[in-house]
């Protein structure tokens, strides 16, 4: 176990060092990430230029949700976005190389590269979160403070799990990346807004099957002491760590099943 951790630590360290050699490229890509996040923010501001409330929530409430979702998603993006290349790994046979090493496949795929530039998006999320907290009218307690620390981390784990489970489709469908993206990037966008504005079945899919509602919406309701317009109980906001654990278990199971399928068919 300790040696496995050490192996991964060394691999990640080397990936980070390798990036230092492409400083210009890193800077430009970081800018692209910051701009991407910034424009999402601009979208929210433009929306509130035309209305004062979205599903019963004001601008600052939505910014809080956006901050929580985007910070969590940005961290997940940093951790697992290597999965975007899974189809390519399978097509070129590089995945087989990973199978003849004494480490698990998922860990190896995730550490093929670690792209720090993806911090750009997390940074936008974090900054928005700080701003939203500074303007929101929140009566703080120790429990809420704890929730504030835990929720983005749980969010990162939830989104990472979603990513792992969704990208597993590439073991059946090498070009499955875009299907997976509609779930991963889709749930990021979906959960940046109050989920009650969307149609019911879309909400079931993007907020509960993909448990994105536990990343931003429900924790935000707790922080703001608002009741859920959808009528679900308020304590749901405290459950995001549990949901994260469950999501990890499901994602791990899906991944194992997918790799077993791959090794059983070699396709």
């Amino acid at each position: 176990m300790a040696s496995t951790v050490r192996a991964y630590r060394r691999v990640i360290g080397s990936r980070l060092r390798a990036q230092a050699t492409y400083r210009l490229s890193f800077t430009v890509e970081l800018c692209a990430q910051v701009i991407a996040g910034g424009l999402e923010l601009v979208t929210i501001l433009a929306v509130f230029h035309n209305t004062t409330s979205l599903g019963g929530f004001g601008r600052n409430d939505v910014l809080l949700m956006y901050g929580l979702a985007t910070f969590g998603f940005g961290l997940a993006d940093l951790a697992v976005s290597q999965l975007n290349h899974l189809g390519e790994l399978i097509r070129t046979g590089k995945f087989d190389v990973l199978l003849v090493r004494p480490l698990g496949t998922l860990g190896q795929v995730l550490t093929l590269d670690v792209q720090l530039r993806r911090l750009g998006r997390a940074a936008i999320g974090f900054a928005t979160l700080l701003f939203a907290l500074s303007v929101a009218d929140i009566s703080w307690s120790m429990a809420k403070l704890a929730l504030l620390v835990v929720a983005p981390l749980a969010g990162a784990v939830i989104f990472s799990s979603v990513w792992v489970a969704a990208c597993s489709i590439c073991f059946w469908l090498v070009d499955g990346r875009e299907f997976a993206n509609s779930v991963t990037y889709g749930s990021s966008m979906f959960n940046s807004y109050p989920i009650n504005i969307f149609s019911a079945w879309l909400r079931r899919l993007m907020a509960f099957v993909v448990p994105g509602a536990f990343v931003a919406y429900y924790p935000a309701l707790v922080l703001l002491e608002r009741t859920d317009p959808l009528g679900l109980p308020g304590w749901l906001g405290w459950t995001s760590p549990l949901v994260a654990v469950a999501a990890t278990a499901v994602a791990g199971g899906v991944w194992r099943f997918a790799v077993r399928h791959y090794r059983g068919t070699g396709s």
């Binding site: 929306v47 035309n50 209305t51 409330s53 979205l54 599903g55 070009d175 499955g176 990346r177 875009e178 299907f179 993206n181 509609s182 779930v183 889709g186 966008m189 979906f190 807004y193 504005i197 969307f198 149609s199 879309l202 993007m206």
Partner: peptide, 22 residues
Amino acid sequence: AGLSTNVVFGLMRVGLLLAVIG
């Protein structure tokens, strides 16, 4: 795959815009 992505995001954009119009 592209088509399904377009539809999923389309549903979200519809939801957002209709909420704005209210």
